[in-house]
Design a protein around this nucleic acid. Structure first.
Lengths: 115, 115
DNA sequence: GACAATATATAGACGTCCGATATATAGTAT
DNA sequence: ATACTATATATCGGACGTCTATATATTGTC
């Protein structure tokens, strides 16, 4: 199923930060890894990711370093900062509250029937 | 906790349609009812809802009728159409896929550790 | 008499994401 | 040789969805 793109709004930052939680990654790798972990539900576009990475770096939520493995074009790796780890934790908590609230509304009819 | 507003993007239509699933409602009532069912997590703004209701009516997902109860200013009630019921079902299925995918990504680290 | 709540409405601003486009290298197929 | 696909990063312009601010009108409360 194709997911309405607007649903993703607001959770992209959280997902990107989560990918970097545990290991450093370069942009292209993050696109692939996100698709893999989500069973192809999320196919993050390069035009979305790269500007987002630059913004996150400006906000000091992530850091980057270039690593030339000599196999191909040099890759720019990204690393989660302490500040980024903190934001990720906040975003995950927010996610739980948000989905919980939506699910309560979706079950609302049934709950009203009980009352 | 204050939820990042951008998270709501894309699910608002589903929530609004869901409110009308079971009973007709007028705009102001929908704002109140959504806040109630979500434990005040969602406080939909009038400036968001009314234009949305007009758009949904143009798309024939909902119908409206005026009802003057003589207690106050006449209220415009909204009713879910067959087409709207169908869209609601689709949106709910999409929601399940979407949240499932996000949750898989959020647990991704643990899954990798298992592998 | 002033203020808050009820009830609907629209215009303008803003943030987020995507499509299109560009650049560069490596591998594969014809 | 040549074309095409995959890898890898980058930027711009536009579409879309929501909010803030503002407006109007009625009812109930202090």
């Amino acid at each position: 199923m194709a997911i309405d793109k607007s649903l993703l709004t607001g959770s992209t930052t959280m997902l990107v930060l989560k990918l970097l939680d545990g290991q450093d990654m370069y942009g292209y790798q993050m696109i692939e890894e996100l698709a893999r972990r989500s069973d192809r539900t999320f196919e993050l576009k390069a035009g979305t990711l790269y500007p987002l990475l630059h913004t996150l770096e400006d906000k000091e939520l992530i850091r980057s370093y270039e690593k030339d493995e000599k196999t191909q074009r040099p890759r720019r790796y990204y690393q989660l900062s302490r500040k980024g780890k903190k934001l990720l934790a906040d975003k995950q908590a927010e996610w739980t509250v948000y989905t919980g609230a939506v699910n309560r509304v979706l079950r609302g009819g049934a709950l009203l029937a009980d009352a």
